[in-house]
Amino acid sequence: MYRAVRIHDYGGPEVLTLDMLPDPVPGRGEILLRQEAIGVNFIDIYFRKGIYKLPSLPAVPGMEGAGVVEAVGADVTGLAPGDRVAYPSALGSYAELRTIAADRVVTLPPDIGFDTAAAAMLRGLTVHMLLQEVYQAKAGETILVHAAAGGVGLLMCQWARHLGLRVIGVVSSEDKGELARQNGAAEILVGHDNLAARVRKLTDGAMVPVVYDSVGKETFVASLDCLAPRGLMVSYGNASGEVTGISAGMLATRGSLYLTRPTLATYIAQRPALLKGAAALFDMIGQGALAVRIGQRFALAEAAAAQQALEARATTGSTILVP
């Protein structure tokens, strides 16, 4: 038997229950993974609330983790019991044990620990996607990053600095602003009030070619107003609620803007893309260009508290569960 946190119905943090389940057996093309660390992300909250629908209920939430291969199923090659692996996007991570498709995990370099991997895989590959796939940022450009002191935000500030970008980071407090600045943000804006006017001042009226917005409903229109003509609005999260009521005219009247709503799952659906992103992430960590900050650790049984802290924006950096 093993412990797993499950959702039996959609709702608040209280719907997360710690259950005992029979040990799983890997099927064809799968591995059995004993998890050492588990990432906590906003997408977990979207699944818990039912914003994103689970395949069925009850279900184990969570998308990210790292651990040791316990067993391999039929037709699995290149992996063996004892191998250290991690994954960024496979539902079912809030558990001590889990089965997972072998082509969804990557082998960890010896110098990257389980905690770091669980804190960085989903967020780090998201940053790689945002800065080098969704929009190919160029040295010298100024970008606007919301939630700049969050798990994705801190990694984005560091990666962007490495690429020679100037980051304007938007945060909710002065303390978070200082943290974002330490991680590479050149300018800090606290709060969303009069956002466009403040960005206009920082850019001498030019505005920015791209906005990265994980906040959602609260900041969507303000983010559009920060873009230069033909700029790109990248809406990749719903921390304040889902963005609804969008009209094409909102983009036209603000200078023929572009809008995208990317998901990491789409960008790493093919294994070569997953391996490419993971290699880039591990290289950034290995050369010291990316320092993964784990701001909070919770026991697996405290998954509800971990999600509450994340939802209340009371966290900095990454949050992990320790089985």
Rank of each mutant, 00 (worst) to 15 (best):
Y2E: 06
V5N: 02
R6V: 03
R6G: 01
V15N: 00
P22T: 08
P24E: 09
P24A: 11
P24N: 12
P26C: 02
G27N: 06
G29M: 01
L33W: 13
Y46P: 08
I51H: 15
K53Y: 02
A59I: 08
V60M: 05
V60F: 11
P61L: 08
A66W: 02
A71I: 00
V72K: 04
G73V: 02
T77P: 00
P81R: 15
R84I: 02
V85S: 03
Y87W: 15
Y94R: 13
A95T: 06
R98G: 06
I100A: 06
R104V: 02
P109N: 04
P110L: 03
D111F: 09
M121V: 02
L130R: 10
Q136V: 07
K138T: 07
T142C: 14
A148K: 01
A149C: 00
M156H: 07
R166E: 08
I168N: 14
V171R: 11
E174H: 14
D175G: 15
K176L: 09
G177M: 05
G184R: 06
I188L: 09
L189D: 03
R198E: 04
T203I: 01
M207H: 08
M207T: 01
P209V: 01
S214Q: 09
V215Q: 11
E218Y: 10
L224Q: 11
L224F: 07
M233V: 04
M250Q: 15
M250D: 13
A252R: 09
T253S: 12
T253N: 15
G255K: 06
S256Q: 12
L259G: 10
P262I: 00
T263G: 11
T266D: 06
Q270R: 14
Q270N: 10
Q270L: 08
P272A: 14
L275S: 07
G286Y: 05
Q287W: 05
A301R: 10
A301C: 04
A312G: 15
A312S: 13
R313L: 14
S318N: 14
V322T: 14
